[in-house]
Design a protein around this nucleic acid. Structure first.
Lengths: 152, 152
DNA sequence: TCTGAAAAGCCATTAGC
DNA sequence: GCTAATGGCTTTTCAGA
């Protein structure tokens, strides 16, 4: 379990990891050194997995985001493993989940433009091993983007 | 457009935003101050939207992740707007996208346990305004988690 | 064991070139 | 873009609650 003060620290760092330990300590009622030590412990415990910059997709040239539901030709460990390894290796595949429901996998993909989308859909995804059926859903609007987990 | 050196900087910061400008500058062939100025400009241009800690979902107590496909009872601006505002306000809804395809929206949701999942599915999602059909897909395995955009 | 205070070293940031 | 200088921050050490 995670203590209340630690949760406040995590919430602050999740929103803005460039805040200093002194600043966060001030808001949670700790000195800079005490706050810093707690952060270090949360890192060591694996609660904090790392720190990253949030980049603007459009600025990077990605104008198209889409989800792909993928079904495979079987459920054997060999088939699943082959697909997962190949999906993981493709940089176009941003995320990949094995799910219950109609499809076997849900993939999140980013493309530079509609031509790139076409290429990824027809060549990359369809070319992953043991794929039998794919169905893409284009993202027309991001209503709520990822801003981290609720920590309360 | 973004220059090659800036892309290397972005890639490094996306992976680990705690690296110093001096360290990144060394790998991309710049002095600390030059690298720092480029980072500042990328922030000002909005290419870098912010910095955040990556937290471990299980450590926070989230054992269940699922996607929900949601259909609404109409497509009018009022209906879409009401749903989107309500979805955005729910902390359980981590992400929300308006998509093409069978459903109108795709939501990503995290739950503490199966009981919490039940609560969110039956009360939160179903209670969002103008929802007519929902279909959940439970994540059984995260094959590839979000690690940022390819910047090359 | 966790805290706060102080010291040392590193880093971000700016100015000058 | 680089070098140099400054101020702030991280990080460690140490003593007390």
């Amino acid at each position: 379990m995670i203590e209340a003060t630690d949760r406040k620290i995590l919430s602050a760092l999740q929103m803005d990891s460039r805040r200093s330990a002194a600043s966060i300590g001030e808001t949670v009622g700790l000195s800079a050194s005490a706050c810093h030590r707690r952060i270090r412990l949360l890192e060591d415990r694996g609660v904090i997995e790392g720190y990253g910059a949030r980049l603007n997709a459009e600025a990077l040239g990605y104008t198209v985001t889409f989800f792909v539901e993928v079904s495979l030709e079987g459920q054997s460990e060999a088939i699943l493993g082959a697909f997962e390894g190949a999906a993981d290796a493709r940089p176009e595949v941003l995320e990949c989940y094995l799910t219950t429901g109609n499809a076997d996998y849900v993939l999140k993909v980013a493309a530079l433009d509609t031509e790139d989308f076409e290429r990824i859909h027809r060549r990359v995804i369809s070319g992953l091993p043991h794929v039998t059926r794919i169905q893409s859903s284009l993202v027309m609007k991001t209503v709520k983007r990822w801003r981290g987990y609720p920590v309360r």
